[in-house]
Every structure is written in structure tokens, then in C-alpha cells.
């Protein structure tokens, strides 16, 4: 059995509002994330997703319990660098991630910190900006970009670090469908090459891309499993203020009228394949 890349053991977390008041946001969460996994995290607003994500590379430290990244306890500050170079994080809000006054420097920032040699740096910056389609913006000030452009730059900054694990907290929320698809393709490619991906999202179709889905509710893991199983539990999801992918809904509607049509589809391509299977069989193809 492989060692987990990230291990959470009985993690609880409190935000302190003032000297008397705390709010408990994570409650006794235990989970393992293995190298090369693609995990999606879904849950309603305020359920604790971002708080959980910030524990994956030690930005937040548990109030109770422990988080280990490649065996290093995130509570131990000596391992901070080791942890951050393994697990890269794209925040929900891109403005919080901008550190430099020029796009290129912004992408370079993390690389300088981990001591990447200049020539290698050049190569990585170019590749990262290319991957997110922002090459022609390299000399622009990042805080003067559109919302979607800022998100792309934030993603580039983390891609350039080439971490083993990429944590994306709604990193594509302001991208158009095309942009989102482009980024998803980049992620899929990295995942195929072995990168671990953890993606927080409110887009059920995006979560369907993962190997495993974690459903968070009130700081606990409420459900966990492969997307095809999770998205069959429509009623429970609805109670948790969530939904199912469009492809699944469409498949359900078609199945009601054509019982032979599989209802448990989660990807658009599966709908197309299923149409071909049945229409072809009936000889209806034009």
C-alpha cells in the first residue's frame, strides 16, 4: 500500500472571532489523500471547504488533531518549506495571491523562494503562462487585469512550482466555459503525469472529473466515493444544497422515456456514446 501524501487525523479547527468567541468550522475530520489521486471537494457555502483546503499545506493548523504532508507534521515549522514545495495552493480569491507588480515576476515569486536556477526559471514561467493562455500579458501589472485573467495568473504561479500536489479552491469560478475547459485539460494532463489534484468546486460537472468526491457538511465529511456513486444519491445531495451534473440529469430524463438508456451517466461524452449505442442499434443514424 502506498503511503498517503496527505493524512488528516481527527482534525478540528476553530476560528477565533474575539477573546471570548470561537467558531468551530472543522469537526474531527480524518482522511488520506494518496499520490496521483484526483479528489473533488463539494459542499454548500460556509460548509468548511476553504478551511479544509488551507490545512493541506499548513496555511492553517489544526486546533485539534494532526495533518501530515509526506510524513511532515504541518504543526512543525521546520518543515514549512518542505511542505509548501510539495503542495501548491490556488486561493479562492486571486487578489490574495498577487505579490508582484508585473505578471512575470508574480509567477517567478515562488520559484525564487525555492531557489530554482534562472534558466530553469525562465523555462517554467514561459510554460506556465502558456498553459493558462496568458503569455501575451507577461509584462502587464497583475492587479490591473480582469477577474478571469487574474485567476489564470494565479494558476500559472502555482503550476510553475511543479508541486506534487495542486490544491485549487474554486480556481476557475470566474472563467468562461472555454477557459474552464482549457484549464481542466491542463489539469488532466498533469494528473496523467502523476500529479495529485484536489479541487474545490461548485460545478458538479467539474467534480465529475475526479476519481473521488468528498462532500463536506458543517465541517464534517458527509459522503465520500467515486463521482458516479455520489451523483446517484440525488436526494441526499439536494438536502445538502448540492446538485448533480447536467449530463446526469439529462440521462435521467431520457431514461424515463427510453428505459434502455443508462441513467447513471456523469460526463457529456457518455451521453453521446449512449445515443450512438442505442440509435445505431435501431439503425437511426443519419
Amino acid at each position: 500500500m502506498k503511503e498517503p501524501l496527505i493524512r488528516m487525523e481527527g482534525v478540528s479547527f476553530d476560528y477565533r472571532l474575539n477573546s471570548e468567541e470561537v467558531v468551530r468550522v472543522l469537526r474531527d475530520v480524518s482522511l488520506d489523500i494518496y499520490p496521483g489521486e484526483y479528489v473533488a471537494i463539494i459542499g454548500h457555502n460556509g460548509s468548511g471547504k476553504s478551511t479544509l483546503a488551507k490545512h493541506f499545506n499548513g496555511i492553517l493548523k489544526p486546533t485539534e488533531g494532526n495533518v501530515y504532508v509526506a510524513g511532515f507534521n504541518t504543526k512543525d515549522d521546520r518543515y514549512r518549506r518542505e511542505i509548501r514545495r510539495r503542495v501548491g495552493m490556488v486561493f479562492q480569491h486571486p487578489d490574495n495571491q498577487i505579490v508582484a507588480t508585473i505578471v512575470e515576476d508574480d509567477v517567478a515569486f515562488g520559484l525564487e523562494n525555492i531557489g530554482v536556477p534562472p534558466r530553469e526559471m525562465r523555462k517554467r514561467i514561459d510554460a506556465a503562462l502558456e498553459a493558462v493562455g496568458m503569455s501575451s500579458y507577461r509584462n502587464r501589472p497583475p492587479h490591473h487585469l480582469s477577474g478571469g485573467q487574474k485567476q489564470r495568473v494565479a494558476i500559472a504561479g502555482v503550476l510553475a512550482m511543479e508541486p506534487r500536489c495542486l490544491v485549487l479552491d474554486e480556481a476557475t469560478s470566474m472563467l468562461d466555459a472555454h477557459g474552464r475547459r482549457e484549464i481542466l485539460q491542463v489539469l488532466r494532463r498533469l494528473h496523467q503525469r502523476g500529479m495529485t489534484i484536489i479541487a474545490v468546486s461548485h460545478h458538479m460537472s467539474e467534480a465529475a472529473e475526479a476519481d473521488r468526491v468528498l462532500v463536506i457538511e458543517a465541517g464534517r465529511i458527509a459522503m465520500e466515493g467515486p463521482p458516479r456513486e455520489i451523483f446517484q444519491r440525488q436526494e441526499l445531495l439536494r438536502r445538502l444544497q448540492l446538485d448533480i451534473p447536467v449530463a446526469t440529469r439529462l440521462a435521467g430524463r431520457i431514461h424515463e422515456r427510453v428505459p434502455d438508456f443508462q441513467p447513471d451517466l456523469i460526463h457529456p461524452r457518455e451521453i453521446v456514446d449512449e445515443v450512438v449505442r442505442i440509435a445505431g442499434k435501431k439503425g437511426a443514424a443519419g
Binding site: 454548500h44 457555502n45 470566474m174 461548485h202 444544497q241
Partner: peptide, 11 residues
């Protein structure tokens, strides 16, 4: 972008 970042029910 009124619904960016909202969960499915809130949206």
C-alpha cells in the same frame, strides 16, 4: 457574475 462561488441551491 452574481452566482460565481455560490453553491447550487443558493444559485
Amino acid at each position: 457574475e452574481p452566482t460565481a462561488g455560490l453553491d447550487p441551491r443558493s444559485r
